[in-house]
Design a protein around this nucleic acid. Sequence first.
DNA 1: TTGGATAACAAACATTAGTTAGTTTTGGCT
DNA 2: AGCCAAAACTAACTAATGTTTGTTATCCAA
Lengths: 194, 194
Amino acid sequence: MLKPEKISKRQLILAEAAKLFKDRGYSGTSMRDLAGQVGMEAASMYNHIKAKDEILASICFRISDLYISQLGEISATAASYGDKIKALIRLHIRLMVEDGPAVSVANHDWKYLPEPKLGEFKQARKTYEKGFAALIEAGIAAGEFQPVNVSVALFTILSAVRWIELWYRPGRELSAEELEANIITVLLHGLERK
Amino acid sequence: MLKPEKISKRQLILAEAAKLFKDRGYSGTSMRDLAGQVGMEAASMYNHIKAKDEILASICFRISDLYISQLGEISATAASYGDKIKALIRLHIRLMVEDGPAVSVANHDWKYLPEPKLGEFKQARKTYEKGFAALIEAGIAAGEFQPVNVSVALFTILSAVRWIELWYRPGRELSAEELEANIITVLLHGLERK
DNA sequence: TTGGATAACAAACATTAGTTAGTTTTGGCT
DNA sequence: AGCCAAAACTAACTAATGTTTGTTATCCAA
């Protein structure tokens, strides 16, 4: 007795919600707006989701889980710290390009999560940041990186990738690979010529 | 017959609005919330402002005007392109540190501006980005910068400064000057050691 | 074909939104 | 002291919010 359609309807709602939340914000998106986009009445959506904030939680935690599991994999490889950071930057860029709306929501609208979800999400983010920072710190200790403040480097890198959501459209002059190469050049080697 | 208190009340509303908009978003902030923060009834605020979206517009255009005028000044100096970019990065950091909530609102909530204000704001932003990009392009042409994609460099720099709003508190371990030095190091010279 | 769950609907709920109207209080000027 | 405008208040309005209720339609399994 499989019900692939039920999962599919729920995920359709989640996908459309991510797009609307990204464009209009969580508070700026009404359940009727979302229903219109999905193609049903607002009341009907409650057959697939429990509440509006459950939609938000679903989107946010799917993304944070993804980041954390990928960070674990990348950390465990035998690559240099520079290559690990590059892999993480590529991960961020790929996720943003492939799953843009959901990533945007996880970046901006997580603050509308009600407790206790809010606390859980903050902790997940902190876990990720700690793991990322540890790589930068180890890279500095190993002499691979410049001795900058770790938090500054961490957040500069994390933020430097967020503009993609506002700017990048697949099929622009730039391919995803060129995008990666250019961003990594600026962040790892710097804008100025040596 | 001066009325300094009237200006002051309006600016108190704008200042509190920027803080609330930053924390809860424009749609997530009610006029009653704001009134509570200001210390009056919601209806009373209409003696000082015309409408909720006028508050938003006031905040956004004050910031965009500031950026554009500063860009003009910096562009007109005789410094190297590297120094001009550094001066702009410093400007962004200083504004974020000194006027954080308003800068955050101009960064995130401008999209809730109603037309025709929305179009005007987008154009102002485009003007600023064009001017900033011109400096990067000239720097590349002069051989000062690496030959990266100009848009990528531009947005990477602009975004790299936004995390400050979420992270920096005056009186943290890092002074504003150290913050500037570290961010400029990462962006201009790169994380990796040469 | 029919029974029972799944999912759609229209209608309504209580609450909150931004804003206006009407009235009272405040505070400086003559 | 007394006036007058600025600015505060209470009350109310309409529209929109998230969600619930009760009912109908859909659809697969027996």
